[in-house]
Amino acid sequence: MKFTIDHFNINVLDLEKSLAFYNRALGLKEVKRKTAEDGSYIIVFLGDGSTANKLELTWIKSQKVPYNLGDEEFHIAFKTPDFDKAHALHKEMGCICFENKEMGIYFINDPDGYWLEVVPVR
Rank of each mutant, 00 (worst) to 15 (best):
1 M>V: 13
2 K>L: 02
4 T>A: 00
5 I>W: 12
7 H>C: 00
7 H>E: 00
9 N>W: 05
10 I>D: 03
11 N>A: 09
11 N>Q: 11
11 N>P: 02
12 V>G: 02
13 L>A: 05
13 L>I: 02
14 D>Y: 14
15 L>R: 10
16 E>P: 03
17 K>L: 12
17 K>H: 10
18 S>Q: 08
18 S>H: 07
19 L>E: 01
19 L>A: 00
19 L>V: 01
21 F>Q: 00
22 Y>T: 09
23 N>I: 02
23 N>L: 10
24 R>I: 04
25 A>Q: 08
25 A>D: 08
25 A>L: 09
27 G>A: 03
27 G>S: 06
27 G>F: 01
28 L>Q: 08
29 K>V: 03
29 K>C: 01
29 K>A: 08
29 K>L: 03
30 E>M: 06
31 V>W: 04
31 V>A: 10
31 V>C: 12
31 V>E: 14
34 K>V: 12
37 E>C: 08
37 E>Y: 12
37 E>Q: 15
38 D>I: 04
40 S>W: 13
42 I>D: 15
42 I>R: 15
42 I>F: 11
45 F>T: 04
46 L>W: 03
46 L>T: 00
48 D>H: 10
48 D>P: 10
49 G>E: 09
51 T>F: 04
53 N>P: 00
54 K>L: 13
55 L>F: 10
55 L>Y: 06
57 L>R: 05
58 T>I: 14
58 T>A: 12
58 T>S: 11
58 T>E: 07
59 W>T: 08
59 W>I: 04
62 S>T: 15
63 Q>Y: 04
64 K>S: 03
64 K>C: 01
64 K>Y: 02
65 V>F: 14
65 V>S: 14
67 Y>P: 00
67 Y>L: 09
68 N>W: 03
68 N>P: 01
68 N>K: 06
70 G>N: 11
72 E>T: 02
73 E>I: 03
77 A>V: 12
77 A>T: 14
77 A>R: 13
77 A>S: 15
82 D>M: 02
82 D>W: 01
82 D>F: 07
82 D>G: 01
82 D>K: 09
83 F>N: 00
84 D>H: 11
85 K>R: 13
88 A>G: 06
89 L>D: 00
90 H>D: 13
91 K>L: 08
92 E>H: 05
92 E>F: 03
93 M>G: 07
93 M>R: 08
95 C>I: 03
97 C>Q: 13
97 C>F: 11
97 C>T: 15
98 F>P: 00
99 E>H: 07
99 E>S: 12
102 E>T: 02
103 M>K: 14
103 M>I: 03
104 G>D: 06
105 I>Y: 13
105 I>N: 09
107 F>Y: 15
107 F>W: 15
108 I>G: 11
108 I>L: 13
111 P>Q: 05
112 D>Q: 00
112 D>Y: 01
113 G>K: 13
114 Y>I: 01
114 Y>N: 13
115 W>R: 09
115 W>Y: 12
116 L>N: 11
116 L>G: 06
117 E>G: 04
118 V>Y: 04
118 V>L: 09
119 V>G: 01
119 V>R: 09
120 P>G: 10
121 V>P: 03
121 V>E: 14
122 R>K: 15
122 R>L: 15
